[in-house]
């Protein structure tokens, strides 16, 4: 009993420590969003206020950053989802060493520090601009989108690859055999199969773009995104306004997670009933013979 008890106590203590570490700072930050002192302070708690939230709405710099983040996020989604899809399809069509070389190149951005991606993007496009005199290319929005997309495309590719692994090649062949052309096979068979992955990679791409700091801070040049504005603020000095923003972000995230989970459960339930139904029908199978039908 004692050794069991000791283990349990240790496990409990460890779990407490772990999740305390994970959530403690966030909870404390949440509390400071509602406390009156204008330095984020959780203890002592002086008086409840929501005035930091209303300040947030009037903060034009934050709002502009948010708008820029949304635009860049949309651009990243528009670029990375097709590129990731193409990357995954090419991946399934090469073998052995060619595949190794290809994988090494396209996955390397995932293992490269984000600052380096930002730096190299800026340097490269600056030179492209110099040589081609296409000034519009040396633009914070464009560079942020391209810079982030180097590694976000790899994320998307990995999402597509995971889904493609479950794709039954025979379906492609079946469509071809029925007379479809290659583009038709792609549109009718492969793309619908990949649709959930298109969706999840788009979400992943947007979120990765939205919260990216390291690459963006180099590539954005003179413009600002929500995250770079935030970083600047936090470095200058801390105000409970940032806590309030964090609380909002967490609330939105939580709502999203709950909605997603609910949707997933409903889908699972639907599938289960369909399957059960099919099984019932199999029991009475050899009933409708062809003879009866003809």
């Amino acid at each position: 009993m004692t050794s069991q008890g000791v283990w349990r106590a240790m496990l409990g203590f460890y779990l407490l420590l772990f999740f305390g570490f994970l959530f403690g700072p966030l909870i404390v930050m949440g509390i400071t969003a509602f406390n009156t002192p204008n330095y984020p302070q959780a203890y002592p708690f002086e008086a409840f206020t929501i005035h930091w939230f209303s300040d947030l709405l009037g903060d034009s710099e934050l709002m502009e950053g948010l708008q820029n983040s949304l635009i860049i996020g949309a651009g990243v989604v528009a670029l990375t989802v097709p590129v990731g899809l193409a990357g995954a399809i090419v991946m399934t069509q090469v073998y052995w060493r060619a595949r190794g070389l290809y994988y090494l190149i396209v996955v390397s951005p995932v293992l490269t520090p984000g600052v380096i991606l930002g730096i190299s993007t800026v340097i490269f496009w600056k030179d492209v601009t110099r040589v081609t005199d296409a000034k519009f290319l040396y633009d914070g929005f464009f560079l942020a989108i391209v810079g982030q997309s180097t590694f976000i495309s790899a994320y998307c590719m990995l999402v597509f690859l995971a889904r493609l692994q479950r794709f039954d090649r025979a379906q492609e062949e079946a469509a071809l055999d029925l007379g479809a052309t290659q583009p038709q096979v792609f549109r009718h068979i492969l793309l619908p199969f990949l649709r959930p992955a298109v969706f999840s990679s788009a979400v992943l791409a947007f979120l990765s773009s939205f919260e990216n700091y390291n690459t963006t801070t180099f590539a954005i040049l003179a413009d600002k995104t929500l995250v770079t504005v935030l970083a600047g603020r936090v470095r200058q000095g801390t105000t409970p306004e940032i806590s309030a923003l964090a609380v909002l972000i967490i609330a939105v995230t939580l709502a999203g997670a709950i909605a997603y989970e609910a949707l997933r459960r409903r889908e699972a339930a639907r599938e289960a009933t369909a399957l059960a139904q099919a099984r019932v029908e199999d029991g009475g199978e050899p009933g409708p013979a062809l003879a009866a039908a003809t």
Partner: peptide, 25 residues
């Protein structure tokens, strides 16, 4: 779920939260 939740919070904000915990005041 508990593990994923804090992961959704931006890196900057998490650093900020840590600062609120550990700052001199």
């Amino acid at each position: 779920l508990l593990l994923i939740l804090p992961f959704w919070v931006n890196e900057i904000l998490r650093a900020f939260a840590m600062r609120i915990m550990l700052g001199t005041s």
